[in-house]
């Protein structure tokens, strides 16, 4: 029995998927909703497969990945050093805390019009608005990570003769890493959300967001569902990937 458990354990999540597909199929079979609005699972999967194979869905997928990656990397490059700098002086951070919290709490979609005016309808506006949203989340987490650095570790560095810069580089940066990764994980998810919404509404010709809206307007339901699944898979993969990197980098986390 135990051997069977071990064998089947990795397959456990599949049971849920199977259950969902079954319910979906039953609902479709029973005609619960208009078949135009709710296509069958087979149809949807076929559309997903075909979209990936002929490159139309794959092309949009890649565009979204590119935009998300660029905005995320941009956000990280700006937010990590800024976060460490702000976090290293609690007084400085406290004086800026309200502004950071305010913009962090502002829905990034509310900033679309502003970014459209500032940067036009091109790539720039989409990437920057996503980067802006992600940067604030990362910044906030990094700063908190630095501020909550263990006192003993800072004292240890001090007593060994580390100056302020060395303490920042050798202790505070590392101490903040676990919290930084929380920020990075949230940041990449948020960047994806903003990019997809931006692709929907800021004059796009490609990307998953664009494909979704187009499929919806043309009533190509299997294609729309396929795009939703593609976006979901992307979000899941990004989160899973950052967890994997986090485990490698922050190997001491929780120990």
């Amino acid at each position: 029995m135990k051997a069977l458990d071990r064998f089947s354990a990795p397959l456990k999540p599949l049971w849920g998927v199977l259950a969902l597909l079954t319910i979906w199929w039953l609902a479709w079979k029973a005609g619960v909703a208009d078949p135009v609005l709710l296509p069958s699972p087979q149809e949807t999967m076929a559309s997903l497969w075909q979209g990936m194979a002929d490159g139309t869905l794959w092309g949009d997928f890649v565009s979204t990945v590119k935009r998300t990656t660029i905005s995320f990397v941009l956000a990280a490059i700006v937010a990590i050093p800024t976060g460490i700098f702000l976090g290293s002086s609690e007084r400085l951070y406290r004086s800026l805390e309200f502004i950071i919290d305010f913009f962090r709490s502002t829905p990034a979609s509310a900033l679309f019009p502003l970014f459209l005016i500032l940067f036009g309808v091109g790539e720039m506006a989409k990437i920057l608005v996503a980067a802006f949203g992600a940067a604030l989340v990362i910044l906030f987490n990094v700063a908190y990570g630095v501020m909550n650095a263990r006192q003993t570790r800072l004292l240890a560095a001090k007593v060994m003769g580390a100056n302020k810069l060395q303490t920042l580089r050798d202790v505070m940066f590392w101490e903040s890493l676990p919290q930084t990764f929380v920020g990075l994980r949230n940041g990449v998810s948020l960047a994806l959300v903003i990019v997809i919404v931006a692709e929907m509404f800021i004059g796009s010709t490609d990307g998953l967001g664009h494909r979704l809206v187009e499929a919806q307007m043309l009533f190509r339901m299997p294609e729309m569902y396929a795009s939703i699944f593609a976006a979901g898979a992307l979000g899941y993969a990004l989160n899973w990937g950052s967890l994997l990197v986090e485990k490698q980098v922050v190997h001491w986390g929780g120990k």
């Binding site: 263990r150 570790r153 240890a156 007593v159 590392w174 190997h251 001491w252």
Partner: peptide
């Protein structure tokens, strides 16, 4: 200086040997 809380005094991102080098 040797601290009471060795767990928090060492740098967990460095190997023991690198802690001594630091």
């Amino acid at each position: 200086y040797v601290f009471q809380n060795y767990r928090e005094a060492l740098f967990p991102w460095m190997r023991a040997i690198d802690n001594i080098h630091y």
